[in-house]
């Protein structure tokens, strides 16, 4: 089995493990968050944020190339996070004037266009300047890569996940009350705007962490499909969290197996496995009318 060779052969020592660890952390991070993303119909906003983050990727790569370092580091990741969070807030503000659809359409397109031009410029600078590392391949940026995740990247992903999951646990009660009924949240002393901004910020962090594995294009799938599965099967919030985590982890494990065995990008294989799980679950529910936990 190629998977075994990649992970356990001494010649590959440590090459793939950071990516695998980051993928599992991302599954644990995205699953509980995805319930709220689905319930608050923020899937398309997530899509906007992840595509907008490509603008941040381009900017970080270009600045690194000009600075003479090139390549990719944890600082780039942080810059992309700031860019993604700003894009998310930009979408929120623009939504009030233009409507959410239009706001996402504008921000997504502008950031993708700017990101691609900056990526091209960064590649040009790296090609002309000796000693400056070139940017990662465009396919890796768009569809993810296990190889590009460094140990530092995996640790940063772990820290980000702990911060987001800790915040989620801390605000779970007001967040759930607000998400259940936004119109009456104010009368319970909950500030709806703060809840939305906080969810958007957590969503941005999760998107940027997920982009390493699933790429810009498919990152939001990790923030949608586990939520759909969890909400179909869970009878309580706790049950829904368990189902979403199980499906996300299973999706990542099987998806990475496919990636290693077939030598393809991890993003599409993880997403397709999770969609498969969703369809199987839906088939079982239809056949049995089951709903548990």
């Amino acid at each position: 089995m190629k998977t075994f060779d990649y992970l356990f052969e001494p010649v590959n020592a440590g090459l793939f493990w950071p990516g695998v660890a980051a993928a599992l952390i991302v599954a644990l991070l995205c699953a509980p968050l995805s319930l709220y993303v689905v319930l608050k119909k923020m899937a398309f906003i997530g899509q906007g944020v992840s595509h907008a983050a490509f603008g941040g990727v381009g900017l970080a790569l270009y600045v690194a190339a000009l600075a003479g370092t090139g390549g990719w580091s944890g600082w780039h990741q942080l810059a992309v996070l700031v860019f993604a969070a700003a894009a998310g807030l930009g979408i929120s503000v623009l939504s009030k004037r233009q409507g959410t659809d239009t706001a996402i359409g504008i921000v997504l397109a502008v950031c993708m266009a700017v990101g691609f031009e900056l990526y091209r410029l960064a590649a040009g600078v790296a090609a002309r300047t000796p000693g400056v590392a070139g940017p990662p391949g465009i396919e890796d940026v768009l569809f993810g890569s296990v190889l590009n995740v460094t140990t530092g990247g995996a640790v940063a992903t772990g820290v980000a996940a702990m911060l987001v999951l800790g915040s989620l646990w801390f605000v779970r009660r007001p967040l759930t009350s607000w998400a259940f009924d936004e119109a009456t949240a104010g009368s319970l002393g909950i500030r709806g705007e703060r809840m939305r901004a906080l969810l958007l910020l957590m969503l941005s962090v999760a998107v940027v962490a997920t982009m390493q594995i699933a790429g810009v294009v498919l990152a939001t799938a990790m923030l949608i499909i586990p939520g759909v599965i969890g909400l179909s099967w869970g009878r309580t919030i706790r049950g829904a969290v368990v189902w979403s985590v199980v499906s996300a982890v299973l999706g990542v494990v099987v998806g990475l197996l496919v990636t290693f065995e077939l030598g393809v990008q991890p993003g599409p294989s993880v997403v397709l496995v999770m969609v498969g799980l969703m369809l199987i679950g839906s088939g079982i529910r239809r056949a049995t009318g089951a709903r548990s936990a």
């Binding site: 319930l39 608050k40 009350s177 909400l231 309580t236 919030i237």
Partner: peptide
Amino acid sequence: AELRFPLRVMDTVLQPLAVRQPA
């Protein structure tokens, strides 16, 4: 209200009391 929420009636009525409790 978002009725797809996996909540029992009791959990729903508890919400205004729960948000006052520390996490």
